[in-house]
Nucleic acid binder design. Structure first.
Length: 797
DNA sequence: ATAGGGTTAG
């Protein structure tokens, strides 16, 4: 294709010779431009007084020139471009000519972009209908239909649906029938925008417009009905025009509406009737796979893949992607990778959707380093990685505190010809904010705007959160104002991140003030304040705010935050109150919360309150877990209420909760304690219990750990069986366990107490040889033991 | 013109 540019000389001639077009500085040119070329506008005061016929003359010559480009549409186009560069705006007839030329030449995409630009230019000085009228008079039927179709498309691409529909009805007014193609296009986009009702309404009016629905139209309307959830209506329409296309749309609709099982039945029937086969069948199958994945029925999805295999289909990318994406969303990385591996073995080709999902799964599981490593691995594998994959890598690097590398990666991405989008920039801005580099974040905002991408609501939320969190309160307020001024309406998230961010930066009063002044407050904002208080160590204040609300918190995660903050700061009564309020509000607190509080109560030996909560849990159907049982048992043991400990132990076994090494250690330790009064072994009954525990313990096949060995060694030392103690210690080392400080101390003090000086010395020597492994406290221990030894030896002398 | 993935609100 040839693109001829007009030299500045051309325009110079145009403006200063007989045509007398006026060149103006671009800044002040707009109004002038219209009036100079549009004879319909009577704004004579803007025209030079001594050239009354200028506009007419100009228009005519322009027209003449455009007409002469009839055989060269590119020439016509670049003429238009040059005109605009010189601040000249052509009138309706000029546009009509241009549009006619492009349309007769079939340059649809060029036509589209000219029309889009025209629609967006609010100072064009004529209406779009004027254009149609101007074309109607001269162009043949075909061209008008084509132009109207292009107009519909242009409006649709600008999401101006009412105007697009208006074009269709204007055609009816002109007794022309618009193309069904453009109508289908309009309908498809309407669906994308969720305007399914408009699709159905338009479909009913097709006949009025003189249009005849084709098979695509039916499929599209079936889709619209499915989206609306009107499966019966969709089915009725489908049966009016049962094409393979429409069937596939309907099948997809069933899958999207949680009726995948029905889709499976339908497919079976269609196979029998030989309607579905080959690639169509493959498509239908993968839709079903996706449906099952959405319904969280991964096994069913996998079995469909197997059925596809039986029918001779190799591993389908879409189907396999859907399954892997499902596993990744569930953060089930092993299954995701396992399935991926299996399918790769069967010939599946990796694609960027699978890659990005797997990478994101790593990120979500807090394995950002692995995510980035994997990204690099995939980069070297000759698979196309798109900007979504890159984005996950940006995110991972940002969370690792390595934004600079992410920015370099952005350059690499652009070098490969990809254009970054809002999300890419937003991710990087977030990365900068996470590192507190707000200046860089702000610079990036400028850079993206310079590249023609305007920050969206999420971008602003990220930025404003970063500013607030890092203590830049004024800048945060400034950006907040700027986004409002720019026509972006802040949402609840915006307010929440500001409130939480300011609290995080310990600017609690500023946050309170911000919330107070907020015009549109929502319950969410108060939940954020509660969270913010917790964040800055003000759990009592958070609690007060929560009580003052007198209603459930809108964000359930805040309960956790509030509750655990209260526990951490020791306000157990308030924590308990939060639990009770949760029950009152019918928000299930869950096992971990109750367990946490029981643990905290036990720690301060308030076993009575702990038991009450324990009972409440059970009453409400929450079975305490192994941890909670063990903590309770331990506490009862410590308080010497062995019977209660024993009861709990039986109770947990009855519930099918298997005691572990910790539980047994706790029990053994307390049952084998010596009588504090006499210093001798306690009664026969207890001895029996000890051996009983020991028998069950070993029978359960639970491996002993260092703590458990230590307890046993301690016991042997106390009842004077030093050989047995030594043997236990050796056995512990043989079984591959590394004795810790407590284990050494226990044995050592046993030796010392009972006067086995030689053994003690040997042990200390052994210990000192291990000096590499000795940490500070360990060293102290050796020193203390040596001192103790010395004292004992001195005493003996 | 029939189907997937990514950013904030830890």
């Amino acid at each position: 294709m040839r693109l001829r540019l007009f030299s500045p000389t051309f325009f110079f001639l145009l403006s200063h010779s007989h045509l007398r077009l006026i060149r103006r500085p671009a800044a002040s040119s707009r109004l002038y431009a219209v009036s100079a070329f549009n004879p319909n506008l009577s704004d004579s005061e803007q025209q030079p007084v001594n050239h009354p016929n200028l506009s007419k003359l100009n228009q005519a010559s322009l027209q003449r020139f455009l007409n002469s480009t009839r055989d060269d549409p590119n020439l016509a186009l670049s003429f238009l471009g040059q005109l605009k560069q010189h601040g000249v705006s052509p009138n309706v007839n000029a546009y009509a000519t241009l549009v006619r030329i492009l349309s007769t030449w079939g340059l649809d995409r060029k036509l589209d972009s000219v029309l889009v630009e025209l629609i967006q230019n609010e100072e064009r000085g004529f209406t779009v209908m004027d254009l149609i009228e101007a074309i109607k008079d001269e162009a043949e039927y075909e061209v008008l239909i084509r132009v109207s179709g292009a107009l519909v498309k242009a409006y649709v691409s600008l999401a101006m649906f009412d105007e697009a529909i208006d074009v269709l009805f204007q055609m009816k007014r002109l007794n022309r029938v618009p193309s069904i193609k453009s109508c289908n296009f309009l309908m498809s986009r309407l669906i994308e925008f969720g305007k399914t009702g408009m699709v159905v309404a338009l479909f009913r009016q097709l006949k009025q417009l003189g249009l005849c629905a084709n098979e695509y139209t039916y499929a599209i309307v079936v889709k619209a009905l499915c989206r609306k959830g009107d499966m019966e209506g969709a089915l009725r329409l489908l049966l009016e025009s049962p094409t393979v296309f429409a069937y596939k749309t309907f099948i997809d609709g069933l899958c999207a509406n949680g009726q995948t099982e029905k889709a499976v039945v339908l497919i079976k029937g269609l196979i029998d009737e030989k309607v579905l086969a080959g690639d169509d069948l493959r498509t239908a199958y993968s839709m079903v796979v996706r449906g099952f994945c959405d319904e969280m029925k991964t096994e069913a999805a996998e079995s469909v893949v197997l059925e596809m295999e039986r029918n001779g289909f190799g591993p389908d990318v879409r189907a396999c992607s859907a399954i892997i994406v499902r596993y990744c969303k569930d953060m089930n990385l092993p299954e995701a990778l396992g399935f991926l591996d299996l399918m790769l073995g069967k010939g599946l080709k990796l694609n960027c959707v699978i890659v990005s999902s797997v990478l994101q799964c790593y990120c979500k599981m807090d394995m950002c380093l692995e995510a980035f490593e994997k990204f690099k691995e995939f980069s070297g594998m000759n698979i196309f990685l798109d900007r979504v994959c890159y984005n996950v890598a940006f995110d991972a690097l940002g969370k690792l505190g390595r934004v600079e590398e992410a920015v370099k990666l952005l350059q690499e991405m652009m070098d490969k010809g990809m254009v970054p989008d809002v999300i890419n920039y937003t991710t990087l801005i977030d990365g900068y904010c996470l590192q507190g580099k707000v200046t860089d974040a702000l610079n990036l905002i400028d850079e993206m705007s310079g590249n023609g991408i305007s920050p969206d609501l999420v971008t602003y939320n990220v930025l404003v959160a970063g500013l607030a969190r890092n203590g830049y309160e004024e800048e945060a307020q400034e950006v907040y104002k700027r986004m409002k001024a720019g026509g972006l309406k802040p949402n609840a998230v915006t307010h929440n991140v500001i409130i939480e961010g300011l609290c995080f930066a310990r600017k609690v009063e500023v946050a309170e003030d911000f919330l107070r002044r907020l015009e549109q407050k929502c319950p969410d904002n108060y939940a954020s304040l509660v969270k913010g208080y917790c964040e800055s160590g003000l759990s009592k204040k958070a609690y007060k705010q929560f009580v003052r609300l007198e209603r459930p918190l809108s964000k359930s995660s805040v309960y956790n935050k509030l509750f655990f903050s209260l526990c951490m700061e020791g306000y157990l009564d308030k924590a308990l109150d939060v639990l009770k309020k949760m029950w009152a509000y019918r928000v299930e607190p869950g096992r971990s919360m109750c367990g946490k509080l029981i643990g905290a109560l036990c720690e301060i030996n308030n076993v009575r309150e702990a038991q009450l909560l324990f009972d409440t849990m059970v009453e409400r159907g929450l079975i305490p877990d192994l941890f909670t049982y063990t903590i309770m048992i331990h506490t009862y043991c410590r308080l010497n209420e062995l019977q209660k400990a024993d009861d709990l132990f039986e109770d947990m076994k009855q519930r099918g909760i298997k005691p572990d090494v910790v539980t047994y250690t706790v029990l053994l330790n307390s049952y084998q304690k010596l009588d504090p009064e006499t210093g001798s072994v306690q009664g026969e009954e207890q001895k029996k219990r000890v051996s009983e525990f020991w028998r069950k313990f070993t029978a359960a096949g639970i491996g002993l750990d260092v703590v458990c060995y230590t307890v046993l060694i301690d016991r042997q030392c106390k009842i004077n069986k030093i050989e047995k103690a030594t043997k236990l210690f050796d056995r512990m080392i043989e079984s591959g366990l590394e004795p810790d400080m407590v284990a050494y101390t226990t044995l050592l003090s046993g030796y010392c107490r009972k006067g086995y000086i030689d053994k003690a010395v040997a042990l200390v020597t052994e210990l000192s040889k291990k000096d590499i492994l000795l940490t500070e406290p360990f060293g102290d221990l050796v020193k203390r033991a040596a001192l103790k030894l010395k004292r004992i030896q001195q005493n003996q002398e």
